[in-house]
Design a protein around this nucleic acid. Sequence first.
DNA 1: CGGTATCCAGTCGGATACTG
DNA 2: CAGTATCCGACTGGATACCG
Lengths: 109, 109
Amino acid sequence: MMNQNLESIKVTLDVVCGKWKAVILLTLYEEGTLRFGELKKQIPLINHQTLIKQLKELENDRLIKKKSYQVVPPKVEYSLTDYGQSIKGLLYKMIEWGEQHSEQNKTPS
Amino acid sequence: MMNQNLESIKVTLDVVCGKWKAVILLTLYEEGTLRFGELKKQIPLINHQTLIKQLKELENDRLIKKKSYQVVPPKVEYSLTDYGQSIKGLLYKMIEWGEQHSEQNKTPS
DNA sequence: CGGTATCCAGTCGGATACTG
DNA sequence: CAGTATCCGACTGGATACCG
């Protein structure tokens, strides 16, 4: 039956289709554990509030985990879970496909 | 540089992140060329207008092509382009990942 | 420093009705 | 049969301001 496939792909799409989610994940792959501010520095174009929201969604989806140190000023670290690590190969396949085919998207003159 | 990767993955995400786009592509993989009405029959839950919009976007992105026969009543066939075929493997990888990890999304009780 | 709480604008999926 | 033209509600990304 095809319906199971549709459910499965929906799971995947839900997890990576946020505007900045792939960017955040790729940053954590390359940089490892990062504090909120460091993450913000790596992704300068993202809005403060937007970053918080996207992180929360990724956390709810268990792709990343948050560690809060109870200090002043606050210190919070974000890192990938095993689940988050497991999607790395897929993201790089997406990069690959986008690379290979980006020319085809140019509108003919 | 990482920015090129981000551009590439954006291309990929733009192309598959519509609510029904993956479903439409998967249907065309399995069924081959289909008329509008047949496509609608295969995907009963989609709204008529929504299907038209998603098809138009896929067509603009060159993943599918439309062939109109100038007859009454109208007859239109949709099929995959080579570009559309080329993303098939990626979609099935997405299904695979979603399958393997869907249990992890269940909220703990 | 990192997080809430609001509010706002744009986009997207969808409902309905009409056309050739 | 397939498509266009509207209109609408919901969601999402983002701007701003304030809190611990």
